[in-house]
Design a protein around this nucleic acid. Structure first.
Length: 344
DNA sequence: AAGCCGGGGGC
DNA sequence: GCCCCAGGCTT
C-alpha cells in the first residue's frame, strides 16, 4: 500500500459501505437487538462458522439460555449439548466459564469496555471489538477473515494473512476507511465480505466500492488475499467398542484436551473376557480440519449380565440408550453411528 | 510465533 | 480434493 496518504483520502470508502449496508444488510435474528449477551453469543457461535450453518444453534441457544444468569446457572454438559454438531467445542466450555465470570466479577452486568470484554474467556480481540462497537459505541475495527479479504483486495495488498502480524496490519488498514459509526461499519464489512467480496467468484459488478478497489481495477481480485500457510491433515486411527446389552450401551466423557473436548464417546478398550462377544465391526472415515480420521467401531453384544455389570463397575462407564443419548453431546461420526444403530 | 481445534458448503 | 468460514487458546 501507499504509506503517506491521509486517512481522509479513503474515508468515503467507509461511508459508501455504510450506505450500502443500510439498504442491503442481511436480515439476521441478532440484527434486531443490541443486547450485549445476544451479540456475544452470536459472535462466539459464528467464529469460523458460516451463518447458515450456525443459525439454528444460535436460535436454540438463546431460547434455552436467554440471559447471562440462566447460562451461568446451567450445567456445563447441557451447554455442550446445545453445541452438539457445531464444532470447536472449547467455545461451549469457554462461553459457560465466561457467563460465570460475568456473574462473579461484574454482578451479572455485561461489561461495556473493550478491555473488560477482552478478559472474558473465549473472547479475543475480534470478538471484543465486535461487541463493544455494536453494543456500546466502541471504536475498534472487528478484524476477521472478511476484513482480510476486502482490505487486501481494496488496496491490492499482498501482506500474507497467515502471518501472525496480519491482525495488527489489517487493523491499521481498516482505520484508513473506518467511519465514525464503527458498529455498523464492522457489520457492513461482514456483509460485503459474505455477499459481494466472496472468496470465490466475488460479485464485483455489484460492489459499492469497486471504483476504489485496486485489485478490481487491475483485474487481479482472485490473487487476493495472499495466504501462504497450508493446512495439512494427518491420519489418525481411533478404536471404539459399542458395548451393547438389551438396548443399552456404554459411554464415557472425553477430557478437555485434544479433539472433541468433553464430548461423550464409547469405551476405547475391552477386557479379554469380553472379546468372545464381539459380533462385528465397522470402519468410518471422517475428516476434521487437521485430521483424517479412521474410526473402527467393534460391536460387542453382551448376553451375560455378570460380564456386563463387571465391566461397568471396573471402568465406571455410564449407561445410556439410543433415546437417552439425545441428551448428551457426541462427536458427529459417533452421533451418526448411534442414529444408525437405532434402525437395527 | 506457530500449532491446534470441527463441521459444513462451494467449487 | 481443496479452501474458507463473524477466531481463540496453548505452548
Amino acid at each position: 500500500m501507499e504509506k503517506n496518504r491521509a486517512a481522509s483520502d479513503f474515508l468515503h470508502v467507509g461511508n459508501r459501505l455504510l450506505e450500502w449496508y443500510r439498504n442491503n444488510a442481511r436480515d439476521l435474528p441478532f440484527r434486531q437487538t443490541k443486547d450485549p449477551y445476544k451479540i456475544w453469543i452470536c459472535e462466539i457461535v459464528f467464529q469460523q462458522t458460516r451463518i447458515n450453518q450456525g443459525l439454528n444453534h444460535y436460535n436454540n441457544f438463546v431460547t434455552r439460555f436467554p440471559d447471562v444468569k440462566t447460562l451461568a446457572e446451567a450445567e456445563e454438559n447441557e451447554v455442550l449439548l446445545y453445541w452438539k454438531g457445531l464444532g470447536y467445542y472449547s467455545r461451549a466450555i469457554n462461553i459457560h466459564t465466561a457467563a460465570r465470570q460475568i456473574m462473579n466479577n461484574y454482578h451479572g452486568i455485561f461489561p461495556s469496555q473493550y478491555e473488560e470484554i477482552l478478559k472474558l474467556k473465549g473472547v479475543g480481540k475480534y470478538t471484543a471489538a465486535a461487541i463493544s462497537s455494536i453494543c456500546f459505541g466502541g471504536k475498534m475495527p472487528a478484524v476477521d477473515g472478511n476484513f482480510y479479504r476486502v482490505l487486501s483486495r481494496l488496496f491490492a495488498d499482498d501482506f500474507d494473512i497467515s502471518n501472525s502480524r496480519a491482525f495488527a496490519y489489517f487493523s491499521e488498514l481498516a482505520t484508513l476507511v473506518m467511519p465514525d459509526n464503527v458498529g455498523d461499519f464492522n457489520q457492513a464489512m461482514m456483509d460485503i465480505g459474505s455477499e459481494i467480496c466472496k472468496p470465490k467468484n466475488p460479485v464485483c459488478g455489484e460492489c459499492p466500492i469497486n471504483e476504489d478497489c485496486l485489485a478490481f481495477s487491475m483485474q487481479k481480485v482472485s490473487q487476493y488475499p495472499v495466504k501462504t500457510k497450508k493446512v495439512k491433515a494427518e491420519d489418525l486411527a481411533l478404536t471404539y467398542y459399542f458395548v451393547h446389552r438389551n438396548g443399552e450401551f456404554l459411554i464415557q466423557q472425553r477430557k478437555d484436551d485434544f479433539i472433541w473436548k468433553k464430548l461423550f464417546e464409547f469405551p476405547t478398550a475391552i477386557t479379554a473376557e469380553m472379546e468372545p462377544f464381539i459380533t462385528g465391526s465397522k470402519t468410518i472415515t471422517h475428516k476434521l480440519t487437521h485430521k483424517n480420521l479412521s474410526i473402527e467401531i467393534f460391536k460387542v453384544e453382551i448376553d451375560s449380565e455378570e460380564v456386563w455389570n463387571d465391566f461397568i463397575a471396573e471402568n465406571q462407564y455410564m449407561i445410556t440408550d439410543a433415546q437417552a443419548s439425545h441428551d448428551k453431546s457426541f462427536p458427529k461420526p459417533l452421533e451418526n453411528y448411534i442414529q444408525n444403530s437405532l434402525k437395527d
